[in-house]
Write a protein that binds this DNA or RNA. Structure first.
Length: 310
RNA sequence: GCCGCGGUAGCUCAGUGGUAGAGCACUUCUCUGAAAAAGAAGGGGUCGCCAGUUCAAUUCUGGCCCGCGGCA
């Protein structure tokens, strides 16, 4: 163990009886609803694991549960920061651990619910990410270098990391260089600190055909609910076009529609296509995790949960 | 009917006398403080049909079929 001061050190505590449930699935698969039903049945509270729902004012586009849909079940990690600031996995992990401990104190079961696999993994498997805050000034300076130059630079200052990194991925290259410069040390080897209690992971399984239909239905519903106006509002509150673009999916293409006159019909098609791609990317993450219990409906999830909590 | 243009990967199109490429789509994958982000790899075409010229034709020539535009 080295470079300890650069590690995230928050540890979750366990009293030996606590258990935790995760509900995950692709976009539009019906996670939120299932989590609320489980929470009602098993005296649980919900912690969102969604990298976009943490932002205030991003409601319709992210499919955030409404007050009514929450059915009085407390939800954590929604609306925690302004979309003008950048939220990261590390903050997520810290806040989620806090929420977990709080829920345990109330003698309830936390349900982690969301589709951001990286967040879920960082939380339950405890990926310890080097304690180096993003330095946007440094990053924009590195941004001037070509991808080849970035890789060469990393190879020089940290050959070990250069060996495993994807050498065409500028974003990752820049991050790796940032760590090395800031810590004056190589990027540490991956270290983990998994949650110290039993975890049941429930995944909602949908066929890709079914999922496409669900995505479509939800997209049209959101548009009707005023998703375009939501983006206008974000703009008016000072969120940049660039930022909206970075959020991806509905925010990206609605912004392009508003800013560059991307035709409305094309915008819908692009959001649909990109959402389908996104769903696929989510699966590449989920597929690897053999702990996931895939269910087709609430009944199956309830059965699993009952058994797990006994 | 005549004139012109076109028919190449699922789509939009490049291209060459020596059996072909791009972008998108599709499939698979990566993931160390942006993760709905950022990246990677792969499969796929008897180059409209028939004949001729040629050592060799997807590429040249002729005919035919189909589509588009114009003229009648």
């Amino acid at each position: 163990m080295f470079n300890n001061k650069y590690r995230t050190i928050e540890k979750a505590t366990s009293n030996g009886v606590n258990k935790l449930i995760v509900v995950l699935g692709q976009t539009s698969s019906g996670k939120s609803e299932m989590a609320v039903k489980l929470a009602e049945k098993f005296k649980a509270e919900i912690i969102s694991a969604d990298s976009r729902q943490v932002y205030k004012g991003m409601d319709i586009g992210t499919g955030k549960v409404t007050k009514k849909e929450m059915k009085d079940i407390p939800h954590y990690l929604l609306d925690v920061v302004s979309p003008k600031t950048t939220f990261t996995v590390v903050q997520y992990r810290k806040l989620a651990l806090k929420a977990i401990n709080l829920i345990f104190k109330k003698n309830k079961t936390p349900i982690i619910c969301g589709g951001t696999a990286f967040y879920i993994k960082a939380l339950i498997d405890g990926i310890l990410i080097p304690e180096v805050k993003p330095d946007w000034q440094l990053r924009s300076k590195l941004e001037e270098l070509s991808t080849k130059e970035l890789f060469k630079k990393l190879k020089k200052i940290d050959p070990r990391r250069a060996k495993t990194i994807e050498k065409q991925n500028r974003r990752r290259l820049i991050r790796a260089i940032e760590i090395v410069i800031k810590t004056k040390n190589p990027v540490p080897l991956l270290d983990k600190s998994p949650l110290p209690y039993p975890v049941l992971i429930i995944g909602i399984k949908k066929s890709s055909k079914e999922l496409k239909i669900l995505i479509k239905k939800r997209l049209l519903k959101r548009l009707k609910q005023g998703m375009v106006d939501e983006v206008k509002k974000l703009r008016a509150s000072g969120v940049s076009w660039k930022r909206l673009d970075d959020f991806g999916l509905e925010y990206r293409y609605i912004a392009r529609h508003l800013k560059s006159g991307l035709p409305y019909a094309e915008m819908i098609e692009l959001i649909q296509k990109e959402s389908e791609h996104f769903a696929k990317r989510q699966m590449t993450w989920f597929k690897r995790d053999k702990r996931i219990h895939w269910v087709k409906n609430y009944k199956e999830a309830e059965k699993l949960t009952k058994k797990f909590l006994n």
